[in-house]
Amino acid sequence: MADIAALTSLIEPEAKKLGLDLVRVAMFGGKSDPTLQVMAERPDTRQLTLEDCAELSRALSDVLDEADPIEEAYRLEVSSPGIDRPLTRAQDFDDFKGFDARVKVATPIDKRKQFEGRLVGLAGQDVVIADPKLGEIAIPFAGIASAKLLLTDDLIKATAPLSSEGADSIQTEG
């Protein structure tokens, strides 16, 4: 499988050139159908337009074709992180404090590998989450295997699109 750190070092400069922050680079699927997933966002809006996706996809296609860092054929998927986004950077846990999240750890903490609750934020190198049953839990950022926001009404309200202009005039077939 591909080296994610090497891929990130190729991808991140291209995202930065377009004024985007890289959220995640990941490979999914097996040898028969691998997908390189690239999530990015505008730092000022935390969103990504369709035009941003297309522009980044074209730039990455050129760079990846030239460097050829993935041996097998693969699919390139460029997207925004979405509403129930993955939390991949330490700063994400502060930026989204007050929202509900699910955090999975690589090594159990008090015999648990998964925690859900409201993000309190960062405390040094720890992510603090308020679990309704356990209270506040400090989780070392380095020990987090995966984390994501949970879809709630509060999150939906807070991440409403920048513009819904034209939404009423969209026509569908049938």
Rank of each mutant, 00 (worst) to 15 (best):
D92L: 01
K133C: 02
A73Q: 12
P108G: 04
E55M: 14
P132R: 01
A73W: 06
D84Y: 00
D95L: 11
E165M: 08
S61Y: 03
L7I: 03
R24L: 15
A101N: 02
L87F: 03
D62G: 09
L10T: 03
L122F: 06
Y74D: 04
I83F: 06
D33A: 14
G166V: 04
E173H: 11
A158R: 07
M27Q: 13
L18V: 06
D33C: 11
D153R: 14
A158G: 12
R58M: 07
K157S: 10
K113C: 01
L50H: 11
L50V: 12
I170D: 08
A26E: 13
T35V: 14
D92N: 11
L162W: 03
I170L: 13
T152L: 01
S169W: 05
D126P: 05
L134T: 02
D95Q: 14
S80D: 05
V25R: 05
D33R: 15
G98L: 03
A73F: 02
A130Q: 14
L7W: 02
S163E: 05
D95S: 14
R102E: 13
S57T: 10
I139C: 04
L162G: 15
E71C: 03
T8W: 00
Q171Y: 02
L119Q: 02
R118D: 08
D154G: 08
L151I: 07
G124F: 01
T45I: 06
K104W: 06
F96T: 02
I137A: 07
K17R: 14
M39E: 15
V128T: 11
L134P: 01
V127D: 01
A40H: 06
V78C: 05
A67E: 12
L50M: 13
T35I: 14
F141D: 08
T107Q: 13
A15G: 03
Q91F: 00
E173T: 09
P86D: 09
E77N: 13
K17I: 03
V120W: 00
V23Q: 05
R58N: 08
I156A: 15
T88E: 10
A142F: 08
D168Q: 10
E41D: 08
F141Q: 10
G98D: 06
I83D: 04
A54Y: 10
F115P: 00
G98I: 01
A145S: 15
P13M: 09
M39I: 03
I4Q: 04
E51A: 15
R75N: 12
P132F: 00
L64F: 02
T159K: 15
L48A: 12
R85F: 00
R58A: 09
R24F: 03
G30D: 11
K157T: 05
V63L: 04
G124W: 01
L122A: 09
G19F: 01
K133N: 12
G124Y: 02
A158T: 02
T45R: 09
D68Q: 09
I11C: 09
S9W: 02
L64P: 00
A59L: 01
S164E: 14
